[in-house]
Every structure is written in structure tokens, then in C-alpha cells.
Design a protein around this nucleic acid. Structure first.
Ligand SMILES: [Mn+2]
Ligand SMILES: [Mn+2]
Ligand SMILES: [Zn+2]
Ligand SMILES: [Zn+2]
Lengths: 174, 174
DNA sequence: CCCATTATTGCAAATTATTTGCAATTAGTG
DNA sequence: CACTAATTGCAAATAATTTGCAATAATGGG
């Protein structure tokens, strides 16, 4: 039984219905190797069903989030938008490195984190149910480029557009 | 020389001006022991200067962010709003635990994280410039309560209001 | 296979967080 | 004290996400 059928069954079990849209979104997610935004998932899915609606994408994603089928991530320095992580079912506890220049994301396991969790609990008590660890820096390839060509002051892959926060302005004229 | 004067000097050094509003916001931040949102900082500061404007708060916070005087944090399960961290200058590398029930945040140092960073770099190369680690779970006191009274299905301290995401709804009637 | 029930969709409008343009104000400088 | 550029307040723009509702479609039973 494949992933989609599995999810579908969990859905049915709670009185939910498997619809064309949901199947499409699941198929789209299954093909992701990245951490797309709702909008990106919407655009990818829409290529096969142009009348799919963004609300449906959001609703489906929230539902999958509740089911633990997708995770959500927010990365610093980005527009305040949520990114979805279809990989959580495959690798339940993985963490993220994000390159400040090319925005590449590397997923990695961190078994050592358990020690940190234990450490915390010994000091402060309580329980830890989940953890989010994000490293920010330069990926190997960007590091090479910087070493070769000197520091880049700009982000070559930066998403541009209004409502960005490129380098701070208090309003003074340039 | 106190913290505010220090920040003020850094500001001057780049052609900035120290204004009443900025001083007020800095004083407000200096008194924070938590991780307030822009709105919260605005409300606290406004008690002393009712005509302070929220835009000014945002602009000042972004400026402080660039200076590395405040940090920003986003916690899972919250409204998608940014929280500001006035403690970064005092404790440059500290991390966060957030209680799922009472929303308490505990700050803690994690020197062991260096090992994890090294581990990562040995595997994938590149460099790590910063790291964000957040633990989610139950704080000691909530854990006690749960053990005594049984699991609470609701969050006693939850921020409520529209645009929340309380427990997922696909739109079906209840 | 068709019907009834009700979950789900598409659409448009609402919400909320954050940013921005601009004219009026003000800090810093001499 | 006057000048100039930085900053503010205000209102409006932007953008991500959610929601109400009528129309549509999935499921289960007859
Ligand atoms: Mn991932
Ligand atoms: Mn903190
Ligand atoms: Zn890179
Ligand atoms: Zn607690």
C-alpha cells in the first residue's frame, strides 16, 4: 500500500472523504523534494487541475499537518510565510540547514540532540515532545564561491518583490 | 555606560538620530523579561507616550535587529507573528523551550550544540553562522498538573480570537 | 445504479501582521 | 537660532492565511 492510500485510509477512518483535489495535492506533495510554500504547492498542483483553489490547498495542508503527514517550517530572513515539509513521514526527526546565499536546504538527522534534551530536562524538569533545530550559514558550494570571488553582498537567489525586507530602511532618502 | 547609551552611540555612528520614541522603545525593551510581539512592545511603550505609533515601533525594532540588539523568534502553533528577543545582547547564544500548555518560555544555553555544528560541517561542508534551537513540550509545573488532574485537552493560556488555528476544521458543520 | 446525506469545494470577503509613501515634525550641527 | 536630513504619524498598501456560504460531489444504503 502506497503512501497516498495510507493517508487516504487515515482520512476515511475519521469520516473524511477522499476527493480529486486531495488526491492531487497528495500526489504533488509526494513528488516534492523541497520545502514548498502553500502557494508553490498550489501552483504545482494547478498544472494538472487549473481550477483547484488555494483555500483548498491550505485546508488540505492543515488537515495533513494535524495528521502529522506534513511538517511546517519557518526560516529566518524570509517573508513570513510557512513552508511545508512532506518529508516528515519518511524521516520523523530531521533538522535543517539553510544557506544564506543560495537558500538551499539540507536535511540532516541529529541523534545527539537527545543528549541536549536530557540535559535540559535535568536542569529544568518537564518533558520535551518535539524539537526544531535550524542551522544558518553558507553551504559548501557557496563557501567555495565566496573564497574564490570574495564576499558577495547580495543574495543571488533572493526572492524579490514588494513587502521584502532586503537590508533595512528607516525611511530616509537614499 | 548603560545599554541604552551604548545602543545610542552605535546609532549615531551611522548617521542615525536618537529620538524620544527610540529611547522609549529601548527603555521598554530593557525592562522586558519575555519575548514580546511588536504589538506588545507598542502597548507597553504607549503607556508612557500615548501618541507613539506602531510603525515607529516596527521601524525601530528592525533597526535594532540589524544592529544585532534584538533577536527574533517564531514559535510553532502561534499566530504567524514575530516575537522579539531583547536578551540577545546579554546572552548571545541562548535557546528556547516553550511549554505547550502555559506558553512559558525558558531560555537556556546549549554549549553542546557546537558538537552538533561540527558534526554537520564534517558531513556536509560549508559554515554555520547561527543556529536556532527550540524545544516544545510541557514545563515542570504543567507536567505536575497533568499528572495530578489528568491531561487537559485545552490550553489554559491560549491566545484566542479570530484568525486562530485552534484545532482544525475543514468546514464541516459540527 | 440512483438517492440522500453531508463533507468538501470554489469564491469572495475578512483578518491580521507588517511594510511603505508622504507630508509634517524634530534632532543634530554650526 | 536656523538649516537640513532623518524620523515620525498616519493612512493606505501588501501579503499570508482563514472563513462564510452556496454550490458540488463523495459515500453508504436501498
Ligand atoms: Mn525537512
Ligand atoms: Mn530569548
Ligand atoms: Zn549556498
Ligand atoms: Zn507550562
Amino acid at each position: 500500500m502506497d503512501w497516498i492510500t495510507q493517508v487516504a485510509e487515515r482520512l476515511r477512518a475519521t469520516g473524511g472523504r477522499m476527493t480529486t483535489q486531495r488526491r492531487l495535492i497528495l500526489e504533488t506533495l509526494a513528488q516534492c523534494t523541497d520545502h514548498p510554500t502553500a502557494e508553490e504547492i498550489y501552483q504545482r498542483a494547478r498544472q494538472r487541475a487549473p481550477d483547484l483553489n488555494l483555500s483548498t490547498v491550505y485546508r488540505t495542508l492543515r488537515w495533513l499537518e494535524d495528521l502529522g503527514v506534513v511538517g511546517t517550517q519557518r526560516f529566518e530572513g524570509e517573508r513570513p510565510q510557512e513552508r511545508f515539509d512532506p518529508a516528515v513521514s519518511a524521516q520523523p526527526e530531521h533538522h535543517h540547514f539553510r544557506c544564506r546565499l543560495c537558500n538551499t536546504i539540507i536535511e540532516f538527522p541529529a541523534p545527539l540532540l537527545e543528549v541536549l534534551k536530557q540535559d535540559f530536562i535535568t536542569h529544568y524538569g518537564g518533558t520535551i515532545e518535539s524539537a526544531s533545530l535550524i542551522f544558518y550559514g553558507l553551504c559548501e558550494s557557496c563557501l567555495q564561491k565566496v573564497e574564490t570571488y570574495g564576499p558577495l553582498s547580495f543574495n543571488p537567489n533572493a526572492i524579490t518583490g514588494p513587502h521584502e525586507r532586503p537590508s533595512h530602511s528607516t525611511g530616509r532618502a537614499s
